[in-house]
Computed example of a mutant assay.
Amino acid sequence: MNRITALAAAAALTAGSLALVAPATAAPAKAKTYTVTAKANIEVAVAKEDTVKVRGRVTPKAAGEKVVLQQRVGNKKKWTVTGSAKVKKNGTYVLTDKPSTPGSREYRVLKPASKGIKKGFSKSVGVEVYRWEKLAYRTPVATNFAPAGITVGTEYYGASLATTTAGTPSTIEYTLGRKCTSMRATFALTDASESGSSGAVTVSADGSTLASHSLSVGTIVADELFDLTGAFRIKIDATTSATPAATVGVGTPEVLCTR
């Protein structure tokens, strides 16, 4: 093979090799996803009293567009939509919820997809919700105490407790299972007690005394609040004079509990 023929063959081979190499193409750009932050104003709330405010920021800003508040309670897997709001010019938002039932719950915020940007979720934030419950509606261990409506100082107290036999010690206990944090109640001799009668009442939790009051007609310990954090069981003890006959009343006792 002469020199000219060799050069031609080499050129043809090079051209063929180049033809076999596919032209490089750029990978398609991935669609952006909204980034959402979220933070609750409180970690513990009282049902029907407190408002949970969830604040955060959306990136890109998405001013004027909607964000959605979702929540789930307890061990439920399904998220439920409970509110929405518009994103402000600076990319921030505020969403609110007023829980009506007790229990642990999680909140998260969704920014729906728009303008070629994929939807984004915030991380979940937890809030423990408690609710005031009538103690008299719970199942007790009781001796000479009964659920009743009582009158103290001419004021009526529904869902209350009252001793049943004057002169006989009375006890009532309730299991809380360490799910309650507070108790509130009014203590007094009821208006049915005779003049000159007397009594006493003691409240304890797991053997530790929370309060002890001596009572006579006209003595009213109103709206007393107790800390029950960690209490498994509470107990109310009362004594009354037999002559003159007395009735100790525990006016509308309530406990603040979660599920």
Rank of each mutant, 00 (worst) to 15 (best):
V52D: 05
A85G: 10
M1D: 14
S198N: 07
E43Q: 11
M183E: 12
K98R: 15
R233C: 02
S124C: 02
V54L: 10
A38G: 11
R184G: 09
L176Q: 04
D223H: 08
T202M: 08
A12R: 12
M183N: 08
A62Y: 01
R72E: 06
S182C: 06
L189E: 09
E155R: 15
G199R: 02
S100N: 09
A63L: 03
A113H: 12
T229A: 10
V129C: 07
Y130T: 02
S17P: 00
K89T: 15
T252L: 06
K48V: 15
K66H: 06
M1G: 15
G149P: 11
L215V: 04
S122Q: 06
P60N: 04
S124A: 15
P102L: 13
S114G: 14
T175M: 00
G230R: 03
T154K: 14
N75F: 11
G149L: 02
A38L: 08
L189Y: 10
D191G: 09
S100H: 06
R259S: 13
L18F: 14
F226I: 06
S122E: 03
P169Q: 00
T59N: 07
G116A: 09
S170H: 01
Y157A: 08
G177A: 03
G196C: 09
A45G: 05
D206Q: 04
S198I: 01
R131Y: 00
R131D: 08
P60Y: 06
S204C: 06
P28A: 12
G153K: 09
E43D: 13
P244G: 07
T239C: 01
A38R: 03
T14A: 15
V248W: 06
L69Q: 02
A146C: 00
R233N: 10
A192C: 01
G199V: 04
A85V: 04
Q70P: 00
V52A: 02
F121Q: 06
T219S: 15
A45K: 05
A200R: 13
S122A: 05
R55E: 12
V67I: 04
F187D: 00
T35S: 15
L20A: 14
K53F: 11
Y137C: 00
I117Y: 06
G83P: 01
P28W: 00
E224K: 13
K88F: 04
A136P: 09
C180Y: 07
K111A: 09
S208Y: 01
W132E: 04
T51Q: 12
L256Q: 11
T258M: 10
T219V: 13
V36I: 14
C180V: 12
G16K: 07
T101N: 14
L189D: 06
I220E: 09
E65Q: 15
Y130V: 02
T101S: 15
V221T: 08
D206W: 02
A222L: 05
G64K: 10
N2T: 02
T5K: 15
D191V: 06
V58T: 12
E194G: 04
E173I: 00
T51G: 03
A159H: 10
L69T: 01
W132M: 05
G249A: 07
T59G: 01
K98S: 14
V127S: 04
G218Q: 10
S104G: 13
R108L: 03
G149R: 12
P253C: 12
A9E: 10
N41F: 08
V152N: 03
T258R: 13
Y107L: 09
T151H: 05
